[in-house]
Design a protein around this nucleic acid. Structure first.
Lengths: 203, 203, 203, 203
DNA sequence: AATGAATGAGTATTCATTCAT
DNA sequence: GATGAATGAATACTCATTCAT
């Protein structure tokens, strides 16, 4: 009974352990032997559940990027307003909270993951998100603001580990800054009429 | 002509080729065989110049992080004013421009580099820089702003590869946003009350 | 036929071949490639059975030093008489007969084996054996006699390869000399007085 | 001046350092790089003085086995008496004292040295010495005694490191035992008439 | 659902040696 | 009398993967 609950959920356990090790040590540095040992099964057992090492990452990606896919789907049927954009940011922040380790893994292993098949998948999703926040003809600085908003949410999570404070508080602070950036990137001039605004004069 | 100028500069050539491959393919995926082949020397020749693979990275780090060390030294003897902070950002942006590929490499291979001896060195430098921009008792959001400013300059460089435009223009845009963030992170209320001045008052 | 009987005994076959090569050519000069080739398996197969090259030696040591361990255990529960000591020598000679090549290997590769983990194990066993033969307060020459008795049994085996004659005869001759040495090292004066016995009379 | 006396004696210094390392760590485990580093010269400098690594050992052998060669020459022109044999043993013991580390090296690296060209040279000298002590038609046990006498002098030196006591005292003890063995190996029955001898009782 | 045994291709690293200067 | 730069061949070891059972 020492290893109870070990019935039929091996696949899941592999994913858990693999994600743990991948994000702790990196993808290349984590060997299947290591994963197998930690699970107290043989390497061959992993191959019963996953065709290749890459397959494990793919399965993680599919499972963990679902919230983001849903976010994209949702956003695409909303009006393209500042409000929507802010909501995208908010929801994205929440999605990251649950899929934290996986995104840390992606962030820290970009080079390793680049030519795995999900490399593209990830990049594509990021670009789609970017497209949801950014107006194509916007100024360069505004584009930077949007990208920064997105990235700060990834990076922030672990870049702020040295900063003391409650993780949830930090997340909120990050969210606030990201929201500001997106707001600034979508100046009123571009938004449906706002009579008083200064800052512009575009016809 | 193919092997001209091969005198005494082998060490340098190794560094160049290695940096190229490391940042293209990742640290772990780049083998010494590959580097040697590209240089048309034997693996053993690499070992004449560098004690280990890690040593190559270390040497790159030492060479390329000098501008940043200098920046830190400079900043530490400046008054702790907003102006200084803005200048730090500006100079950092320039430092990154020349050491671009190396910082891309560091960013994309964090997992791989983490337990190389430079892992710590890099983290430390980042924290020092952060300390230069951020006031310790500042609010969480302001801290986030500072971190984001820093990170956006790293990430920006290659996250904006899909955005069209002149690289130098992009760098300026990134710099602008980062400067804004730092400015916002240092609200006037926190700066030594200065009724009349134009930001001076240092004895 | 060439690959018959190759089922489950690979580990054993590795040990056999390795011991053969180690004692023929020396530990350092024997590469895993060589062992693998002789066995017609890949190097990786060796690593399936043994974690390192050293591990092969360790396993040999454990298997082959068992008779000696048993001898030590046995001797320790015997009375500390001359008779026991003679029996120790006799049994040791027999133990060496079966583990001959391995002890030759140890003897001829002392430098190489010194900082392998068994180096200590071997030395320790020798010291224990020495302690079984020698009385701690005995004279220096008697101590030399005991050590010589022990060593002559190791060295003898292969130092006498140039001497013609049946190996078993040689072993008996070596045993005889070693027994003499131990007997001489334990003069009657030191042994618990035995009034009636012969064997005494030394002034 | 810190490295004074470094003029023209490099060859000698190489030999010293090499012998030190060879006998400490073993022949195979000692690399030319190591020797060069300890001498603070380059590997290439070693090659100015010695054609190969083996050449260093050969030169050591030639220098250090001279006393033994002289001993052999001397012995060969003496009468083949017990007295001569005892003197051979005595002189050999003295020769070993000065060439201690080298003989330790030979003893502990037999496997490594076996197919170096000196391997034969050493073996040959040992056989010659053996021939000087042993009578060809003598009994097997007597042959063993002679071999043991010889070996005990080699082995004794470092096998007795754990035994406490003055090294010179130890050497004398070893010498005494070896002399005894040689004496016993040359029983009166074989020696020029000795009327009274008994010494035996074997049926 | 999983294991035991093995492989092929690769890795970083080390070594004795060479040679033009 | 020695160095700087390099090489060719080797070494121990690791990894993802396969497959019969």
């Amino acid at each position: 009974m020492s290893t109870q609950g070990r019935k039929g959920n091996t696949r899941q356990r592999i994913q858990d352990v693999a994600l743990g090790l991948f994000s702790e040590q990196g993808y290349e540095k984590t060997s299947l032997r290591e994963i197998a040992e930690k699970l107290e099964v043989t390497k061959a057992a992993l191959y019963y559940h996953f065709k290749t090492k890459e397959d494990i990452v793919i399965s993680l990606f599919q499972d963990l990027s679902r919230p983001i896919d849903e976010l994209i789907v949702w956003a695409e049927e909303q009006p393209r307003s500042l409000e929507t954009k802010r909501e995208v940011i908010r929801r994205y922040s929440e999605a990251l909270r649950s899929a934290g380790p996986f995104f840390r893994f992606l962030q820290e292993n970009q080079a390793a993951v680049r030519d795995l098949s999900i490399g593209e998948g990830f990049k594509e999703r990021m670009l789609t998100l970017f497209g949801l926040l950014n107006e194509p003809e916007s100024e360069l600085t505004d584009q930077v603001r949007c990208i920064t908003a997105l990235f700060s949410m990834h990076a922030g999570m672990f870049a702020m580990q040295n900063v003391k404070g409650d993780p949830e508080e930090k997340r909120k602070a990050i969210l606030e800054v990201a929201t500001e950036l997106v707001t600034a990137a979508n100046p009123p001039s571009r938004r449906p009429a706002r009579p008083d605004s200064a800052q512009t004069a575009s016809p």
